[in-house]
Design a protein around this nucleic acid. Sequence first.
DNA 1: GTAATTATGTGACGATCGTCACAGGGTAAA
DNA 2: TTTACCCTGTGACGATCGTCACATAATTAC
Lengths: 194, 194
Amino acid sequence: MAVAMDNLLKYIRSLTAFSDESWELLKIALTEREFKKNEFLLKEGEVCSSLFYIDKGYCKSYYDIDGVVKNTGFFFENEIATNISSFGGGKRSEFNIIACEPLTGIVFDKDKLFRLAGQISEIDSLGRNCIRLFATKQEEFSNLFKLYSAQERLQYLETRYPEILQRVSLSQLSSFLGVARETLSRIRKRRILL
Amino acid sequence: MAVAMDNLLKYIRSLTAFSDESWELLKIALTEREFKKNEFLLKEGEVCSSLFYIDKGYCKSYYDIDGVVKNTGFFFENEIATNISSFGGGKRSEFNIIACEPLTGIVFDKDKLFRLAGQISEIDSLGRNCIRLFATKQEEFSNLFKLYSAQERLQYLETRYPEILQRVSLSQLSSFLGVARETLSRIRKRRILL
DNA sequence: GTAATTATGTGACGATCGTCACAGGGTAAA
DNA sequence: TTTACCCTGTGACGATCGTCACATAATTAC
């Protein structure tokens, strides 16, 4: 659908100046793709060779630690999901990325993207801005654990990222907040009573 | 000292290809500087306009929450310290960066650096690699809280980042690990008995 | 060298958390 | 409709944690 591509262009232009010419060239590296619910965007052990722009639906990153699922991130419409260290450093991914709903995305091919970035400075600048956004968000969530209690972290999500609470089940959210499912259930109960 | 500059060049070349010519140009944006113990590299409320390459000594980033110090990062020799969202996004910093020992660093001036990056692709590439490293590290530490208990986080530091434990006092480290000072003291005691 | 400051350990105690277990509600597939 | 599965809540209980308090060791400043 042309709609997904239009959305991506809007997203890109919200980040950095981007001419129509750069856009036409960037398209070489782009492929629209549908993922079914529970389909993998990236599997543990693979080397990540794509960025995934999410147009519709959402996905999550998770570690499988001795059979226990630990969710580390949720990615919604108008965001980019990837494994930054695997994508940039060529290392095998330690975690999975999986669609939590039927998902429409636009896949950035790494090789083509790098070739273009070497030639077109606007595409290069786009890449840097994406990484910077990613780094900023990681830092934000990392600090949550150092600055706040579990209850305060939940409050933070409610005010700053209400979408996560609306769309992600409590069971899925608990490991992201670093607590057991039952604990999150009780924190929520405590909060309602105040 | 020329030594600090030599170390920086080695560091840069460990990240990305960097010609002698690029290096001569990059020097325009660099200033060597000494910081006394407890001197600020960056203060809360300021806009961060520098990257700090650390040649000797170490520093930390911390939030002051109602007078309580919460340490969020430690940066040692051969690392770059900065506030990535303030540096890249022009926002006021929410935290401080302060020298924990007498510190020798090389300061990258943002304006000059950006001007150079626009012209020299090797300098541009260096910038992207620095941001990527930063993002990878933030992700790593962020996931520690989602995957492991306080005791396991301490173990992780011991094996992966022994330098932090050797040089940072327990009191300083506790908030970085997301626990109270007394708790960290007891965790350490528990571990010795095993 | 002495005083002041900072770092560490530890006891006590209440709060919170993780785990196991089980019950009920909701949804989707057969 | 019935069955199966997932999600949420909750009780019990032991483990861990945060806080306050205080003692002592180590470091730093004068």
